[in-house]
Simulated assay, not measured.
Amino acid sequence: MNIEKFREVIARRIYVEEISQGEWADGIEECQKKEIELLTEDIPTTIDFLKNECTADEYSWISEVIDDVVNIVPSKEFVQCYKDLMIKFPEECTKYNIAGSIESAEAILRWEAEHGEES
């Protein structure tokens, strides 16, 4: 995962959010697609990023696309690593309902497992 590019996309996503004043904008979807692309290009390096370099802000933005990431790469290790960060970033978990995002990602993994797509 290219961390520098990921951080650029997050900065762009924040900017688009600010200028759109909370309204949906085309730039948001563009940023989300790029986030998903970067997060799924190499799951082991993405997991390493989560464990060692991910900030609270980045963690919260990932919650927006975690379902899409898991749909593309149904990795139990990725979801568990993301879930483990709930302890490190409790404020973000509460503010952004990250537990709900994790439950949804785990449901995708269960569905994949039941249909022979387990990783």
Rank of each mutant, 00 (worst) to 15 (best):
L50F: 10
L50I: 08
K51H: 11
K51D: 14
N52M: 12
N52A: 06
E53F: 09
E53M: 12
C54G: 05
C54Q: 04
T55I: 08
T55F: 09
A56R: 10
D57Y: 10
E58M: 09
E58S: 09
Y59C: 02
Y59V: 03
S60T: 07
W61I: 03
I62T: 04
I62F: 12
S63R: 06
S63M: 04
E64L: 10
E64R: 06
V65R: 03
I66H: 05
I66K: 06
D67C: 12
D68L: 07
D68E: 08
V69Q: 06
V70R: 07
N71E: 09
N71L: 11
V73R: 13
V73K: 14
P74R: 07
S75Y: 08
S75K: 06
S75V: 09
S75D: 04
S75N: 08
S75T: 05
E77V: 07
F78C: 06
F78D: 01
V79P: 01
V79F: 11
Q80E: 12
Q80R: 13
Q80I: 10
Q80C: 12
Q80T: 08
Q80S: 10
C81P: 01
C81E: 06
C81L: 04
C81F: 05
Y82T: 07
Y82N: 03
K83F: 13
K83A: 06
K83R: 08
D84F: 15
L85N: 04
L85V: 04
L85T: 00
I87S: 00
I87V: 10
K88R: 10
K88H: 13
K88W: 04
F89Q: 03
P90N: 15
P90C: 14
E91Q: 03
E91K: 12
E91F: 10
E92I: 06
E92G: 02
E92P: 01
E92L: 14
T94L: 01
T94E: 00
K95I: 05
K95M: 08
Y96H: 11
Y96S: 05
Y96G: 01
N97I: 12
N97A: 12
N97E: 13
I98Q: 01
I98V: 14
A99P: 09
A99H: 13
S101K: 05
S101I: 09
I102N: 00
I102G: 01
I102S: 03
E103G: 07
E103I: 05
E103T: 15
S104Q: 02
S104M: 04
S104P: 01
A105H: 05
A105Q: 03
A105K: 00
E106R: 10
E106L: 15
E106K: 15
E106Y: 11
A107K: 15
A107S: 15
A107H: 14
I108M: 13
R110V: 05
R110D: 07
R110P: 01
W111P: 01
W111T: 12
E112T: 05
E112D: 11
A113C: 09
A113L: 15
E114N: 07
E114W: 02
E114R: 05
E114F: 00
E114S: 04
E114I: 00
H115E: 02
E117F: 08
